[in-house]
Nucleic acid binder design. Structure first.
Length: 380
RNA sequence: GGGCAGGUGGCGGAGUGGCCAAUCGCAGCAGACUGUAAAUCUGCCGUCCGUUGGGACUACGUAGGUUCGAAUCCUACCCUGCCCA
């Protein structure tokens, strides 16, 4: 029983619209996942996420392991029950933390030892443990433990990380099947995605694709991109991977969130992406608008009566002027963090919705061109 | 009227003869952020010139003085706070 089905393919590009089945849920792709590392999309309530139209978000196993921790999640029968969220939930394995917590980790073939960024305590994560813990979390989609390497990284190290990632993927898959058989965990229909690594080296990407594909997963995630490499290089790799991955599988490109990159990836046939940018940048004062990005901290907005984006219909744009948001930001009024996050998530979720509509009408490429032209005009 | 403490860049507050255009914090100005150690981080922040190295000018209450050299020492004055009368 396949959990993913393409329902429409763009005639002019590889963009497609699909349906991802997560238990009883049916979610349309291309899908954008806001990031809710600790089980919450920072500043936003679950009611607000639903109001915006968020179908799924992604939480993080490493962070949830440190707090609230396994016991609490077991007690509440998983994260979805704990937070009372009945839409989609993805979890990341902690592979990204191998990259982002690089001073606090020690990696071996067996697994990875983290020193907690909270109290310095040591924790050893094996592929099996990460799978087991994601079962406890009860996410709809879990991912394998992988080694996300930084950029630049030398070829030999990248090669080794591909090997480790493959080795771990096999162990993850084995543990996952075991868990399914024993009916362990808090998700009846959890899926497991494999992760492809290989940095910017095409032969390594190819090797990783072949190895991960041969293990066989419910979907395929692409990791290790958008970690500092030049955009052109990233696009080249994105394109290469797309050409070498089966077009029938669901493809999840991890960590992508700049609008130009989102359009590029969708055009190349990727179905799912996630990013902290709408929320993090929102908290840092940046708003996405139809006419480009604006930084609400800038003094020029102190008297601006217009909304963040006069083409946006979110409640923030209906009720709050740029001047007011500027005032809140300058006064460190906490409400602004929510308002900015809300708008940005709304903006991007809405954009994905429009993109799906445009794909079905074979207007994706034209829409992409028009949208980016306007977005880069920066007349806001 | 007397005593004590003090007056430093938009504010707070270091400095107490050369390394001082002056630590630091705040405020201000701008930039960054791509599977969140992020309500974070970085840069600028006397004026003018220079892409950089740097240069010129004006400045530590006011006015004088000592000194090769003063925000720093001396004199007078002005002002602020506290205490006494």
């Amino acid at each position: 029983m396949k959990s993913f089905k393409v329902i429409y393919r763009d005639k002019l590009s590889q963009a497609r619209v699909g349906i991802l089945k997560l238990g009883n849920l049916e979610i349309f792709t291309p899908l954008f996942l806001p990031v809710g590392t600790l089980g919450v999309v920072k500043t936003l309530s679950y009611e607000e996420l639903k109001e915006i139209g968020v179908d799924a978000f992604i939480a993080n196993a490493y962070h949830l392991y440190l707090r609230p921790g396994e016991e609490i999640l077991k007690k509440f029968c998983g994260l979805k029950k704990f937070i009372n969220w009945d839409r989609g939930l993805f979890t990341d394995s902690g592979g990204f933390q191998i990259y982002s917590l690089k001073e606090l980790k020690k990696i071996t073939e067996e697994g990875v030892e983290f020193r907690s960024h909270i109290d310095g305590s040591k924790h050893f994560f094996t592929p099996e443990k990460v799978i087991e813990f994601q079962a406890v979390i009860g996410s709809d989609v879990s991912v394998c433990l992988d080694e996300c390497v930084e950029y630049p990284v030398d070829y030999n190290y990248a090669k080794r990380s591909v090997e480790v990632t493959t080795l771990w993927a096999k162990r993850c898959k084995k543990k996952f099947d075991e868990i399914k058989k024993n009916n362990f965990g808090n998700s009846q229909n959890q899926l497991l995605f494999g992760i492809i690594q290989g940095s910017v080296y095409k032969d390594l990407r190819k090797k990783s694709i072949e190895e991960i594909l041969s293990i066989g997963f419910d979907g395929y995630a692409i990791g290790g991109l958008a970690v500092g490499e030049p955009r052109e290089l990233m696009w080249e790799v994105v394109n290469f991977i797309s050409e070498n991955l089966s077009q029938d599988e669901v493809k999840y490109i991890m960590g992508i969130g700049e609008l130009e990159d989102i359009f590029f990836c969708i055009e190349k046939g990727y179905d799912i992406m996630d990013c902290v940018l709408p929320t993090r940048n929102g908290r840092n004062g940046q708003a996405l608008t139809s006419f480009g990005k604006i930084n609400i901290k800038n003094s020029k907005y102190s008297t601006d009566e217009s909304p963040l984006d006069n083409e946006c219909s979110c409640f923030v744009c209906k009720n709050y002027s740029r001047a007011l948001l500027h005032h809140y930001y300058k006064s460190q009024e906490l409400l602004v963090l929510k308002l900015m996050s809300y708008h940005n998530v709304y903006f991007i979720i809405n954009l994905f919705k429009t993109i799906r509509e445009k794909i079905i009408k074979d207007e994706f490429l034209r829409f992409k061109e028009d949208f980016l032209k306007k977005f880069n005009s920066e007349i806001c």
